[in-house]
Write a protein that binds this DNA or RNA. Structure first.
Lengths: 145, 145
DNA sequence: TGGATAATTTATAATCATTCTAAACTGTTG
DNA sequence: CAACAGTTTAGAATGATTATAAATTATCCA
């Protein structure tokens, strides 16, 4: 227990989420949750897994990411059309998005106040409020992804 | 001049944007700007154009939409990965997103206050702040698109 | 412990929105 | 009207993601 997260342990995490602790899910959970807050794309996570000598297919990476989102372990963040990011920070927070480099940075939920929220005109409960602050950076195009 | 928009006229609009007034661009501009604020996908606009007897290819619809975005006539809104919406409202405002039906509704910029914006930690100017309020609706799945 | 069974994984094909390409077409300018 | 640049187009290509169907693996219970 390191105090950072209720369950840093991959096995615990999967048990709590009612997901069978398979080799692939365990490995991916470790990559995702054992190093602080991250924003990864499916493909980036797959590459990382292969680099760490895990054998896992891209299809399984997608399946697993979606299961983790369903279980509330991850949050899916959509900024650009075409690619999703998965955020290991599931607490209330927002994002800076650096347009040139594609980097995503967390903003703690209590650093921004969104006030005066009108009620949805057509009814329905608010499930989430996303604030994305787009930042013009001048990163070299080579670092994009 | 109807007071709603500086240029309701498609030809004026294209001239001001320094885009040659071709048959396709004129037709698409009319569809887009002659009926109040809209959120359209490229494919939906293409369908609409065909239904209105215009001859225009999907590639041209994409080209034109991007040119209009570049000229500040449209704003691109990304909510779901996989599909972009183009918003004819380019003034400062935000969105309700109805998760089940996929509908997008404007929220005037002055109806919401986003205060306390932190400065981007890595520098760079803020180009835009997007607020998306996700609403759980229970629309029948048939009406999705 | 050893199947039986259901869940999971996987390679591969399929899909979908979008972009690219190169050739045909059209608006503009002289 | 000719010439040229700008535009459009069909169709192919791309890139992320999802579906499929067969092979593998975890779990359960005798």
């Amino acid at each position: 227990m390191n105090g950072q997260r209720p369950y840093t342990n991959a096995l615990e995490l999967l048990r709590a989420a009612q997901l069978r602790p398979t080799r692939q899910r365990l490995g991916l959970a470790r990559l995702l949750f054992e190093k602080g807050d991250r924003h990864v794309s499916a493909e980036a996570l797959h590459d990382e897994a292969l680099a760490a000598q895990m054998r896992v297919s891209l299809a399984t990476v997608y399946n697993t990411l979606h299961q983790f989102v369903g279980a509330g372990l991850l949050r899916e963040v959509v900024i650009n059309s075409g690619r999703s990011y998965f955020d290991t920070n599931v607490s209330d927070h927002h994002h800076f998005f650096y347009e040139a480099s594609g980097r995503l940075l967390d903003i703690p939920g209590d650093r921004i106040a969104v006030t005066n929220l009108p009620a949805p005109p057509e009814g329905g409960a608010i499930s989430r409020v996303d604030v994305i602050i787009r930042v013009e950076d001048s990163a070299d195009p080579a670092s994009r992804r």
